[in-house]
Design a protein around this nucleic acid. Structure first.
Length: 491
RNA sequence: CGGGGCGUAGCGUAGCCCGGUUAUCGCGCCUGCUUUGGGAGCAGGAGGCCGCAAGUUCGAAUCUUGCCGCCCCGACCA
């Protein structure tokens, strides 16, 4: 037993870290707050990225790339925006190093001070809107629908692998439209893309909703979000889509002439998901034996492990497995045949479970005599003997069952962790004992939300879309309310 | 930035109070043989500036002071 994972019950944070480190998704780095994403973790990210990218293209977006550095003056053009990010920006002040005349080290050359300091992008609205100004003159130039995949830096006080690191990878879409309606449609469309991706690919059920003013993106008119529920009962914001109104157009003077040759400011959106999704994926499905990955995103969907005593048996197994692999690949099933002899089968079983590989196939001489193989699924730990006839079909079907099963499991957990509270005592009790989302009435004010946060550490995660109208009284103040909102403690 | 831990081989650790030959053990690594259906066994072997720097001492992993780094918990945030 070389790799032991701390059980969830013992220490949830440690369990989470153990999974990431021991499954080989990431490592800590020499830079505080920054992580190294290892090949296995990056392969997972690539699958997510590729699918999202396809979905963005299908909805009419194009990729582009904007600079890492943003002139300091840009950031301050939109008042709410600068206030939201000012506290966590890395600033470039110099452009040259030199040998320290006092010693052996290297120092910042004081003579190489930048005239205007550069901010390492925490998000790119400002540099992009400064650029859009030159792209947009007429309604014929609209809409502009651009996305970029990049890294951003937010100097957080406290970091957590994948969930919050100083530097992280993400995509940010930035669109410009002629009308408010069209921009809102775009905002909602991208929210739906995210929700569909989370549910169909990550097997992660999410609640779609709108943020309260407190939780809104700095500079947005409305922030839409998808909220997911983790196994410890804490909520995680998995993606956001913002309707920016004309805020950035006004700040950067982006106007267009409409058909009547009247000038108006353009309407904007921005939307993003990040490597944080990897954290969500880990916390949503994994167990005390390691990662559990949804087949659609798993870098390895099927691992085949040979079991043999003699070289002659191995040869027979090799030939058969070669056929299996060809069949699997023809169906675009990502398969690995692990014939490395330096580890024994038992070791491999444990290792691939730790890495969350959805399906394991053990092939021994005994199996082949019966024209069968042993198939084990990661999600249920179930083992079964399966005929080699039509194996690729069987496995393809099994993979889709696994995808569905882990989604249903996460959904059942999530649904059982949305609890209604009608009194303050109930509200506090649910947060303390059960966790999850608490559905409760709220008087709609920031002051009340702040006070609830102060008292319980819970925040409003979202006001769900298509929320039913219901007469009620605010959980804290008793004032009139017309709908319930979802509260939770969150990451 | 507050509170709590921890820095000894690639990883996890013992030793530290009470200074004293060659720094402990496990995993991993290398060689060989035996093994292979749930993290193999035996034998041999390599690997250390005990986080860094000063100090005390005949002598420091151990005592003193300073510094550095990381993790966990909180405030801030995706």
């Amino acid at each position: 037993m070389s790799k032991v994972i701390t059980p969830r019950d013992t220490d949830y944070s440690q369990w989470y870290n153990d999974i990431i480190l021991k499954a080989g998704l990431a490592d800590y780095s020499a830079v505080r707050g920054c992580m190294v994403i290892k090949p296995y973790g990056f392969a997972l990210w690539e699958h997510m990225r590729d699918q999202l990218d396809r979905m963005f293209k299908e909805t009419g977006h194009q990729n582009a790339y904007f600079p890492l550095f943003i002139p300091k003056s840009f950031l301050s053009k939109e008042a709410a925006h600068v206030e939201g990010f000012a506290k966590e920006c890395a600033v470039v002040t110099h452009y040259r190093l030199k040998n320290d005349p006092e010693g052996t080290g290297i120092i910042v050359d004081p003579e190489a001070k930048l005239e205007e300091e550069l901010i390492v992008r925490p998000t790119s609205e400002t540099i992009i809107w400064n650029t859009y100004k030159t792209w947009i003159q007429s309604y014929r130039d609209l809409p502009v629908k651009v996305n970029q995949w990049c890294n951003v830096v937010r100097w957080e006080m406290r970091t957590r692998l994948f969930l919050r690191t100083t530097e992280f990878l993400w995509q940010e879409g930035h669109t410009a439209h002629a009308t408010s309606e069209e921009a809102i449609d775009e905002t909602v469309q991208m929210l739906n893309v995210y929700a569909q991706f989370a549910e169909e690919w990550m097997a992660l059920p999410v609640v779609k909703g709108v943020k309260s003013a407190n939780e809104r993106f700095a500079g947005a008119v409305d922030t839409y979000c998808i909220e997911a529920m983790m196994q410890d009962g804490k909520a995680l914001q998995a993606g956001t889509s913002h309707f920016l109104g004309q805020n950035f157009a006004k700040a950067f003077e982006v106007q267009f002439a409409d058909k009547q040759n009247k000038l108006d400011y353009v309407w904007a959106t921005s939307w993003g998901v990040s490597t944080r999704l990897l954290g969500a994926l880990v916390m949503a499905h994994s167990d005390d034996d390691g990662l559990v990955l949804p087949p659609k995103l798993a870098p390895i969907q099927v691992v085949i492990i040979p079991i043999f005593r003699e070289a002659s048996q191995k040869k027979i197994i090799d030939e058969k497995v070669k056929e299996f692999c060809a069949d699997f690949k023809a169906r675009e099933i990502r398969v690995v045949y692990d014939e490395d002899d330096s580890n024994r089968p038992g070791w491999k079983f444990a290792e691939y479970e730790l890495k969350g590989v959805p399906v394991r196939i053990a092939v021994g001489a005994r199996d082949l005599e019966n024209s069968s193989v042993e198939v084990a699924r990661r999600d249920t730990k179930e083992k079964m003997s399966v005929s080699v006839e039509g194996l690729a079909d069987t496995i393809a079907l099994l993979l889709s069952h696994i995808q569905e099963n882990i989604y249903q499991k996460a959904m059942a957990y999530r649904d059982s962790h949305i609890t209604r509270a009608d009194t303050w005592e109930e509200f506090v009790d649910i947060l303390e004992t059960k966790g999850g989302f608490v559905s409760a009435h709220w008087d709609g004010t920031s002051e009340t939300e702040d006070q609830i946060k102060e008292l319980t550490k819970a925040t409003i995660r979202c006001i769900p879309l298509n929320n039913p109208v219901e007469e009620g009284k605010c959980i804290l103040t008793g004032k009139k309310s017309t709908e319930r909102v979802l509260f939770a403690r969150a990451y």
